[in-house]
């Protein structure tokens, strides 16, 4: 369980695909690793693919929001892509709207969004 979520480097973007049911520490680890990598690589965009995530609770939601804000401070734009309808409906019901986080339907559209930024 101590493993990390891999971060891929593509051009001036960082790409993360979350495929496991994250426990809280893993989510915080990702937050640390990402800010570290943005700063060391000077990346201008971060793309987080959550299409295989079956659930986003307030903790994970908060981590996604934090990543987005921290990246902004480091001059990088974050796009969260591929949220499943059931997850989106649940998040809205929970009262979390991820204000300030950009979203896109899939990786391709997310990349386009980052390229135009």
């Amino acid at each position: 369980m101590q493993d990390r979520i891999p971060i891929l480097h593509m051009g001036s973007c960082l790409l993360v695909t979350i495929q496991v049911d994250m426990h809280d520490r893993l989510a915080l680890q990702l937050q640390d690793d990402l800010t570290e990598r943005i700063s060391s690589t000077g990346a201008k965009g971060v793309l987080i693919d959550i299409s295989s995530l079956e659930m986003v609770d307030s903790f994970i939601g908060r981590v996604l929001g934090n990543i987005s804000s921290m990246a902004r401070v480091l001059d990088a734009k974050t796009v969260v892509v591929g949220m499943q309808p059931a997850v989106a409906i649940t998040l809205v019901e929970l009262g979390l709207s991820l204000v300030g986080v950009s979203t896109a339907l899939n990786v391709e559209k997310g990349m386009k969004l980052l390229a135009n930024a």
Partner: peptide, 26 residues
């Protein structure tokens, strides 16, 4: 999640109850 599937909850209902359980377990 496993139990919600067993009683044949819809995907949205599964996600809702799993998320609620995650919040409360934390």
């Amino acid at each position: 999640r496993k139990w919600a599937i067993e009683i044949k909850c819809s995907l949205v209902d599964q996600t809702k109850v799993v998320t609620a359980a995650s919040e409360l377990a934390r």
